[in-house]
Computed example of a mutant assay.
Amino acid sequence: MAERAPRRDPHGSVERDVLVRYLDAWTATVLRSQRGGTYVECGDFAADAFRVFGEFADRLEDHHLDVVVVGRAAPRPVPAGLGVRTVDALEDVEVSGPMLAHLSGVGSWPASLARGKAHEVVLTSPEPGEHRERLRAAGLGCVVAVDLVAEDGGTHVLAFATADSRHLATFKNELWAVDEFAGIRYRDPRDPEGTLVDISLTPQLLPLRRALLTEVARRGRSTVAELQRFTLLETIYRAEDTVGALTAAVAAGEVTRDPEKGRLTSRTVVSI
């Protein structure tokens, strides 16, 4: 009897797709800068990263882009123009310029890794924890954490942290654009209802609607622009999802708006 091929880990599939999508955007940004950048891989996706970098082969020779592989040998072949080195542990990583670090299944990591100009972190863990709080405490103020929930209930946490809200917006766009892998749904760790949401470019917005109602109640009144900022920084959703959630809340009579008619704009005021 032929042996069955091992079943792919759905958590790892989503992690890989999100990372590769964001790494493509990050590399394009780095190669437009004179400062260059460094990618730190502490996981199993160095070969995937090399494939991304290989797509920029015509630009690598004229720019400074390095890769640091932690705890294992670097894959071969290495794209021409890419600087590669290996270190034994995360504590050995020293980067002064722009950096994106991928930490997969890492129980602990040095806070110094996140303390640097233009440093960013993609972190995954099978264990729940204060990942969001720790990343913010390390100096990265724009953070999203999302639970990846499999059909059997197994959950991994995927987090991204940056000091640039524009990069957070880019990451969230990639988060919702991944293939709809069977067996994985998203959950906002801060959603008290723990609602599971299918991966989609047009996701279910009920958890966001509840979060916005709570925020408006706390503030008393808010502009749509303020609530879009809240959505970006405090939920798993994109800023542009805010209008859809608020439109449903207005239609249900859960909030009022000023002006009462017309489309919701950034200046529209929403009140309980």
Rank of each mutant, 00 (worst) to 15 (best):
V224M: 06
L206R: 14
E15N: 04
H167T: 09
S96A: 15
V146P: 10
E260C: 05
T155L: 00
L82D: 09
L213T: 09
V224W: 00
L227K: 02
V30N: 04
L246Y: 03
E174R: 15
V143M: 08
V243T: 10
V70S: 02
A57E: 12
L82K: 11
L113R: 00
D58W: 11
L135M: 09
V224H: 02
I236N: 06
D152L: 05
S271E: 07
L19A: 14
V30M: 14
L208N: 09
G244E: 07
F45R: 13
T214C: 12
V269K: 13
E91H: 11
L227V: 07
V52L: 05
L213C: 09
S266H: 10
H63P: 02
T214N: 15
D147M: 07
L100Y: 02
E215P: 00
L31W: 01
Y186V: 05
D17M: 15
P98H: 06
P10I: 02
G43S: 01
E234V: 08
F171K: 04
V178G: 01
R257C: 03
A28Y: 09
T265L: 05
V143L: 12
G83T: 03
G220A: 11
T231P: 01
R85K: 14
F171N: 06
C42R: 04
V78N: 11
W26I: 03
L135K: 07
V144K: 11
V106A: 09
E180W: 15
A169D: 07
G97F: 02
A211D: 06
Y39I: 14
L65N: 10
R190K: 15
L264W: 08
E127D: 12
R76A: 15
P75Y: 05
E193N: 06
R21P: 03
A169C: 00
H11M: 05
G244K: 09
G183M: 05
A239Q: 08
M99R: 13
L148W: 02
P77L: 09
V78I: 10
I236K: 11
D241M: 07
S104E: 14
A101V: 05
V146K: 03
R32I: 00
L60F: 02
S200Y: 07
D188I: 07
R8E: 04
R210M: 11
E260L: 11
D44H: 12
L233Q: 09
G154V: 10
H131Y: 07
L140W: 01
P128G: 10
H63V: 00
W109K: 08
D17K: 12
L206A: 15
G153Q: 06
R219F: 05
G97R: 13
R21W: 02
P207V: 10
